[in-house]
């Protein structure tokens, strides 16, 4: 037996040891050697369908996510889109929290792993807490700005030269040949309101500037907050993911 064959035999034997197949009542389950963050394995439930197998998580992934998360809040906004992307990329379907796929009879093993891989990614959605998403948003925005402009053109957390200016801080003051560009990141309704108030106050104080707002997701803002923000700002980029739009709009103001 050559070395490759020996390795394959060893791996196959070890792998089979780590796969737990269980029949309980009318349930047939396969536990994969793939563990969630709490050490529990992903269990797949098998059932026969015409011409193949239905491989399901029996809604256990959603139940597990619910231990420490409010599902009604967790699967909204960017995380909901991430969830849909994961399902799509792994060829999975969802029925009221049950994640599954159907495969031909000769694709059972591949299907089990396909589901396991998808479940592993779905579990990680819980890591995308609001705080972390917000943190990522500001990090992403900063990266786009510094990739677009020389550092000496950008001033962060700028306190405008007005009475109590530090109370009306501007996320980024961008130097231009003419009026400065005040740029704000908005990642929710609270920041949208604060930005609106800041912009209106600066105008009331007689400052001359252009303004631009980059949102984490403009469609997520309550309608009234979105409307007020649109009125107060000169320009809005609806999502930080639209990097080209951010660059174009900034360069248009700077040049």
């Amino acid at each position: 037996m050559n070395e490759v064959a020996a390795i394959k035999e060893t791996l196959c034997a070890a792998f089979c040891e780590d796969v737990a197949v269980s029949a309980r009542g009318n349930l047939l389950t396969v536990s994969l050697p793939m563990m969630a963050r709490d050490g529990d394995s992903f269990t797949t439930y098998l059932s026969r369908v015409s011409g193949g197998w239905r491989i399901s998580d029996a809604a256990n992934t959603m139940m597990r996510l619910s231990y420490e998360n409010d599902l009604a809040k967790l699967l909204t906004g960017p995380r909901a889109r991430l969830f849909e992307t994961i399902l799509s990329e792994n060829g999975l379907q969802e029925d009221d929290g049950e994640i599954f796929l159907e495969v031909p009879g000769d694709r059972l093993v591949r299907g089990i792993f396909q589901l396991g891989q998808g479940l592993s990614r779905v579990e990680d959605i819980s890591l995308w807490s609001r705080t972390r998403v917000e943190s990522t948003f500001y990090h992403d925005l900063r990266e786009v700005l510094y990739a677009t402009l020389p550092a000496d053109k950008i001033e962060e957390s700028y306190a405008p030269e007005i009475p109590s200016g530090e109370d009306y801080a501007i996320d980024y003051r961008i130097k231009t040949e003419g009026r400065p560009l005040f740029l704000f990141g908005v990642n929710g309704k609270d920041k949208a309101r604060l930005t609106t108030i800041t912009l209106l106050h600066l105008k009331h104080q007689g400052l001359k500037f252009d303004s631009m707002v980059v949102c984490s997701d403009f469609t997520e803002l309550p309608k009234q907050d979105a409307s007020r923000l649109m009125t107060a700002a000169n320009d809005i980029v609806p999502t930080v993911a639209d990097v080209q739009a951010i660059r174009d709009k900034i360069l248009d103001r700077v040049s």
């Binding site: 737990a20 389950t29 536990s31 563990m35 709490d38 050490g39 529990d40 394995s41 269990t43 256990n60």
Partner: peptide
């Protein structure tokens, strides 16, 4: 957390 017996756990 007290779990049922439907899955495998690894320490």
């Amino acid at each position: 957390r007290y779990n049922g017996s439907n899955h495998v756990h690894l320490n």
